[in-house]
Structures are given as structure tokens and as C-alpha cells.
Design a protein around this nucleic acid. Structure first.
Lengths: 190, 190
DNA sequence: GTATACATGTAAACGGTTACATGATTCT
DNA sequence: AGAATCATGTAACCGTTTACATGTATAC
């Protein structure tokens, strides 16, 4: 449902091709939704079969031909209906935490290394998201200051998420400190 | 891979049945991994076929019979290998943000309502996670203060995540304020 | 009598990933 | 000569969700 909605959403901003959609996914919503090339082409075919999008073949001069997809009235309706649906709560899946809890009987420095490795990856991702914040990519499709603000706020979510992860890792490493048998933490009695 | 590892992980703490595993998933790692009943039974069969777990049927007196699964040496090895594997970076999928960006051309109060509804759900979840923090559930399986600390820190991640979500929503609602055409935000020129 | 807890499973559908396949043009 | 970009697609697989199926015991 979400993949379909994302494609309808992009097409509502501007009719475009599968190839360009893939670029939009990677260039703007990457921090909260991803899709592979094959997923996008498959979904476009489905959407077409269902009458939610129409296609126009555009001969590419020199380059390969493109198929430009646009929303049909039914497509606009489907997008509007999706926007109105209440959101069912998000289910998080976080393999790191799985590793953390089941690494509890490993030597402390091994667990610390897992956390350190993870933090490195997140730091890199944070830099990547931050760099995208002022890149014009999606902003060219925004038609008002408000729309630009909305995109800005959405992309900032990825940064807030990275910051939370980094803060949590730092705290975890602190509390589970390298030296075992070190300082004992005060825990309230039941 | 993660589902398999989670099951192996739980079985490494204590041999148990599919039914109890489902309760452990729901009762302790719910904030970072979920699995349905059918997924767990299916995976246990696969694990058995691969020789990573062994089964013992235990007649239930009055209650239905149970099948108690335990790690084989090969199962212990598989878990150890998984713990050593580097983590590939987590891919987040966040339908709320999809809705936010594609609701940009809706009346501002509609977008605000989406955000408000989401925040409600997160607040409820936060309360749920917080309540679980001092529930003994998993702590009965922990064999040392360190192990208890690790579980504690892992469960706190869910709370940190909720807090981040709530802070982000609050900021977003603030910045995209109910009244359109209100205060203009300073944006730096390119 | 009805619902919940205990306990196990199967089947179908859905969504996402990986690998394969083709072919022209442009850049180094 | 080789790699990257543009542009489209197919096939197989894997993991997750939903619905169906069965049966006993206990609590309200």
C-alpha cells in the first residue's frame, strides 16, 4: 500500500517515468522509504492495469525511449483516500537490539565493538542526510514556501532519528562500560 | 535471518516451546522485533530440519502437549556466527512521513490532524514500553546484573525512540502551525 | 453459555530483494 | 577499452501477514 501511495504521490507532483521515480526515491525520501527499480516498474504496471495511471511513450532522441506515467482521475481519488485513512502504528524491526540482548553472555568488549561499529554507520548516514537537507532535488517540485517547509521537516526526521540512535549508543556504551566488574549501577529494589 | 537468530537466542537462554516463544517476543522484544505465531512455528520446523534445534514432546497434564525445543551444538554455533557477522545498515520505512510529504497540498488542518493522531498512538506506546521496563518478564532469564542492565538498555531504546518521535511531531506542528499564511520562517538563500 | 488461555499447525497472499537481461550513449 | 548513465523489463526467492483449522480447560 505504501509503495503504491508513494508512486501516486510523486506522480501527483509531476508526471514522470519509472527511471526518474527511482531517482526521486533515492534522492528525497530515502530516509523514510526505499524501493528498488524492479519494484517500481512492477508497481507501475499494476497501477496501469488498475486504471490509476495512464502512460505515454516519449521517444528519446539519442537516449532510450521513456514511458511517462500520469495520474488518472481514479488515481487522484486513490491518493486522496489513502491520505484520509488512519495510520496503523508503525512496527519497528531493529536487528541491532536483537544482537545486543543475545550478545549479553559474550565478553563485554565484543558487545562494545558491535555498538561502536553501528555508531560509525549511523554517523555516516547522518552526514548523508544532512547534506541532502539543502540540496534542491525535491524543492524544485515544491510550489510554495509551506511545501518546502514540509519537505524540510520530513527530511529532518532522518537526522533526528540518527541523533537519537547516536545518543542511545553513547549511553549504552557508558552504562555497559568496557571494564567488567567495574562500577556497580544503583538499581531500585522491587 | 533475524527471526532465526532471535529464536536461537531465546532458546540459548532456556529451552522452550513455540507458544512460550511467542509470549517472549510479545513480552520482551516487542519494541524492536515482532513475529507472528505462524512464523515462529514454521521457523522452528525449519530449524529442526537443519539440525539447529532438537525437540522433546512433553505431555501436558490437562493442558495440551507441548514441544520443547533446545539448541543443538550446531545451533549454538549458528548463533555465535550470527553474533559475529557485521550488521548491514538498518533500512527505516516510515509511512507517516510519506503521508506528511504527500499531504502538503491538503488544507493545513488536515495535515495537523494526521500528526496529532500519530502522536497519540506514540504516547500510548511509550506508556506501554515504560510499564514493561520494570516488569520482571525477561529479567527472570538474566543471570547477572550485567545481563539485566543489557535488557534494560535495549528496552529503553523503544522509549528513546518514542520520545524522539514525539519531539519531532511537536516541532513539525509548531513549524507548520495551524494558521496558514502566518509567520514566515527565515530560510537561507542558496 | 461465552470468552479466554493453552497449544499446535497449514495455506494463500502480499511485499520486498537479488539476479539476470538488453542496448545505446557519454565520459575517462 | 572500460565504466557510468540512461532506460526498460523478467524471474526466482525470501520473509511477513492474514485467514483458516482444531481441541481442551478454566474463569466469568
Amino acid at each position: 500500500m505504501s509503495l503504491q501511495a508513494a508512486i501516486l504521490g510523486f506522480l501527483s507532483l509531476e508526471p514522470t517515468s519509472g527511471y526518474t521515480l527511482k531517482q526521486r526515491f533515492d534522492g528525497s525520501i530515502r530516509s523514510f522509504w526505499t524501493a528498488t527499480q524492479s519494484q517500481i516498474y512492477r508497481e507501475l504496471h499494476t497501477l496501469q492495469r488498475e486504471g490509476l495511471v495512464s502512460v505515454e511513450a516519449v521517444p528519446g532522441d539519442g537516449k532510450p525511449d521513456r514511458k511517462i506515467y500520469a495520474l488518472t482521475p481514479a488515481g487522484h481519488d486513490a491518493l486522496a483516500r489513502w491520505l484520509e485513512e488512519p495510520l496503523e502504528p508503525l512496527v519497528l524491526r531493529h536487528p541491532l537490539l536483537l544482537k545486543v540482548v543475545f550478545a549479553a553472555r559474550l565478553p563485554p568488549e565484543r558487545l562494545d565493538a558491535i555498538l561502536a561499529q553501528y555508531a560509525e554507520g549511523i554517523a555516516a548516514r547522518r552526514a548523508d542526510y544532512a547534506a541532502r537537507l539543502d540540496a534542491p532535488e525535491i524543492f524544485t517540485l515544491a510550489r510554495s514556501p509551506r511545501e518546502r517547509d514540509i519537505w524540510h521537516v520530513a527530511i529532518e526526521h532522518g537526522i533526528a532519528w540518527c541523533d537519537m540512535e547516536l545518543a542511545w549508543v553513547a549511553q549504552a556504551r557508558e552504562r555497559l562500560g568496557r571494564r567488567q566488574g567495574g562500577k556497580k549501577w544503583i538499581r531500585k529494589a522491587k
